[in-house]
Design a protein around this nucleic acid. Structure first.
Lengths: 225, 225
DNA sequence: ACGACCGCTGAGAAACTCCTGAGTGTCAAG
DNA sequence: CTTGACACTCAGGAGTTTCTCAGCGGTCGT
């Protein structure tokens, strides 16, 4: 689940990044409106958290520009209580939800989930690979109807692989998409989590659902193993 | 897609190198301004990532010097937030885009793609030679729809030959393009890998897809053997 | 035909990648 | 305080890939 956070207050941005990261979201942060338009145009995020007060291009302009460019990713706007803009403006411009600062983190996550669940009409709500299924809205993974409990990291990894199902993804891509983009630890962590996942989702005596492509990365089979 | 990274912070340079490398870019890294001018003048890069704070010759001087020499490769500058230079200076001097450190890797790649796209016509996404096909995005090679698994080196060699398909490429060119430009080992390695490739991609009882041109080098036939 | 050169080949050493089990640190619940 | 869940680190080992090397055979100029 990829989230773009557009927020110029570094402290707040970091808090949100960490919190959502722990919640299993892959978070990218940009600090001004221009970058926001760029990155949101070039990448497919599941939801965008957009502050109004921004350097270079304020939140309303960003939203306007995105919609003009045909980017219909759900947007949750952050409005200040005392701002010059009225909250209802957000809806007028095509925001899908808004939150007044300061906000509770729990509320933020709940609203995000709701937005994602509503989602875009074009995106299938439930990802599947063979008899493996993953429901992003409920963060639930099943094999033949049987729930498989996963930790947040495991879930993040599986969701990432599901999105790229059939393609080889490199360890760096996985690190960038599932861990913090600036993660500087041992890349071996990917191998370790692939193993954890395999232990949970593989069918005994069957081949791995997650195939190792030596020297390249990993690929989740279309038929889920 | 060749990228030159000019960055003196070794850690950051390495991160960028690895990330872009996995993204299918051929990455060269230099750590100071003088080397940057030299290598960028002598080679045809598709885009240059240029840090401002550099030993010997700072980023602005490098850019100035390159333009003076008639090198018009698109340049993306990395500016520090607290630097003495203003970001708008970058545009004045002929930079095509800039990014403020610290930056998100995703943003970097998106900007690069955009720059390259602006710079020239899109390259064909899938390379073919007869019933051989190579998909750079998926790092996947097929013959009549049947996947042929290759090691990273074998893949690199085949991709190189595919790019020069129909032309004779010398052993030195291959060494420079597929191995590290500073490779100092036995050039016989090329012959060895041509053989490995032939064993995997040739059709039995047919002529070699990779033709030997004695005294010159190798040529990949347009019709793939 | 002969020697010099060039590319081909098989074997094996060296380097690397990935897997795995064990262990540390943190945090929250009991 | 203890326990357990989770995220992550680390080191050893198996297997693969990369590279080196030496001998062989074909080709070319003389």
């Amino acid at each position: 689940m990829r989230v773009l956070v557009v927020e110029d207050e570094v402290r707040l941005a970091e808090t949100v990044r960490r919190g959502l990261g722990d919640g299993g979201f892959a978070v990218d942060v940009v600090h001004n409106g221009e970058d926001a338009v760029w990155i949101a145009t070039e990448n497919a995020f599941d939801v965008i958290i957009l502050d109004i007060m921004l350097p270079k291009l304020n939140g309303y302009k960003v939203l306007e520009e995105l919609r003009r460019r045909g980017v219909w990713t759900p947007v949750l706007m952050l409005t200040a209580k005392d701002g010059e803009y009225d909250q209802s403006d957000a809806f007028d411009l095509g925001a899908d939800d808004y939150l007044t600062k300061p906000f509770s983190f729990i509320v933020l996550v709940a609203r995000l989930r709701a937005l994602i669940r509503r989602g875009g009409p074009e995106r299938p709500v439930i990802l599947t690979a063979g008899d493996l299924s993953l429901d992003p809205a409920r963060r639930r993974v099943e094999r033949t109807g049987q729930e498989i409990p996963l930790t947040p990291r495991e879930y993040g990894l599986l969701e990432f692989l599901m999105h790229h199902r059939g393609d080889v993804t490199t360890k760096s891509e996985i690190l960038g998409g599932v861990w913090d983009p600036a993660f500087e630890g041992d890349p071996n962590i990917v191998e370790v989590y692939v193993r954890y996942l395999r232990n949970k989702i593989d069918v005994p005596f069957d081949r791995h659902a997650i195939e190792t492509v030596r020297g390249m990365g990993y690929r989740l089979a279309h038929d889920g193993g």
